[in-house]
């Protein structure tokens, strides 16, 4: 039977699994193999996800499961995303959604964010969690690679109020070589779809010499949807299969963003400690409206939010915030 959760649309025989190994075909249905099993369950601040324009400074409960439908050669969570999920079960947290949400409440979390691997590999558990979260008045957000089917994009849009979609590269060659997929078209399609009625930020890890030449095209694509979409340009942290590669040159990438900055007012260049490009600047008057600390690699933090009711204190311009 065909699994329609992600764009791979794997044909799964009875009792077998597809690429992600998180679903099987049983009793006439595609079912989740490891419901309510979480690889992570922790608290963090929302900037560290990163979400820069969603409830700045708020605390979230972060969760993740196992596996992925991508095979990125630079995966920073390879021990979760690439390993056989069956072999990971012993170390997973086994927490039913109702308890997960209770935990979020107990720790004063404003949201629950799925941020370790790809949510499309665990949709049934996330639907259950969102039902409990809604009852408790807690919003949900996620990081996603965007490689889900159109049907799944609709489901995810019903689960999550805000998204950070990873736009890793545009060319087929890049996607085949570094990501293990044939084309970025499904990702682009889903970004457009999610941005129609959900809050979206976008992240692009830059591999110098491989996808930095696409930065302007990506900026044009984002601006074509909504120029107010925040774009996180990441300096790639060489991990996994790329562990021995050089760290990308910060000045080089920053210069490569010159044209893109003319198209998009909210570009952030970070994922390294001490970045100068993590503050939000008012697009009208140039005042710093939100200051952040850049601690790299999932550790960013709000320093000061200078906005007044979501607007620039100097000129009154509304800042694109959720």
């Amino acid at each position: 039977m065909q699994c329609n959760y992600c764009e791979r649309r794997c044909e799964i025989p009875e009792g077998k699994t597809g690429v992600c190994r998180m679903y099987t075909f049983s009793g006439g249905n595609i079912i989740e193999r490891f419901p309510h099993r979480w690889s992570a369950c922790s608290t963090s601040v929302i900037e560290s996800m990163p979400f820069y324009h969603v409830y700045p400074g708020s605390r979230c409960l972060t969760i993740g499961t196992a596996s992925c439908n991508f095979r990125c050669s630079y995966c920073s969570n390879a021990h979760i995303a690439k390993e056989d999920p069956e072999l990971q079960q012993e170390k997973m947290f086994n927490i039913p959604p109702v308890e997960l949400v209770a935990m979020a409440k107990r720790m004063n979390c404003r949201s629950i964010i799925f941020n370790v691997n790809e949510p499309a590999v665990s949709i049934p558990s996330l639907i259950e969690t969102s039902r409990e979260a809604e009852k408790a008045g807690i919003m949900m957000g996620c990081l996603t690679n965007g490689y889900m089917t159109e049907e799944s994009a609709d489901i995810l849009a019903s689960i999550f109020s805000f998204f950070n979609v990873s736009l890793k590269g545009l060319s087929d060659n890049f996607n085949k070589t570094f990501i293990g997929i044939g084309s970025s078209e499904p990702v682009l399609r889903n970004i457009k779809r999610l941005a129609t009625d959900r809050y979206v930020e976008i992240t692009t890890p830059v591999i110098q010499g491989e996808n930095d030449n696409e930065l302007n095209s990506m900026a044009e694509f984002i601006a074509g949807i909504n120029p107010s979409i925040p774009w996180h340009v990441f300096r790639l942290l060489p991990e996994d299969e790329m562990k021995d590669k050089e760290y990308p040159d910060i000045s080089f990438i920053n210069n490569a963003l010159t044209e893109a900055r003319k198209k998009l007012p909210y570009i952030y260049f970070h994922n390294f400690v001490g970045s100068d490009w993590v503050n939000t600047i008012c697009p009208s008057c140039g005042s710093v409206v939100i200051e952040r600390f850049s601690l790299g690699c999932g550790g960013d933090k709000l320093k000061t939010d200078h906005t007044t009711e979501g607007c620039c204190k100097s000129c009154g311009r509304e800042i694109h915030l959720l």
């Binding site: 920073s76 942290l237 991990e239 390294f272 400690v273 601690l295 790299g296 690699c297 999932g298 550790g299």
Partner: peptide
């Protein structure tokens, strides 16, 4: 070293 969760980000 400036490492968080063993991700090597440089030095301080």
């Amino acid at each position: 070293c400036f490492s968080r969760n063993m991700f090597n980000q440089g030095t301080m």
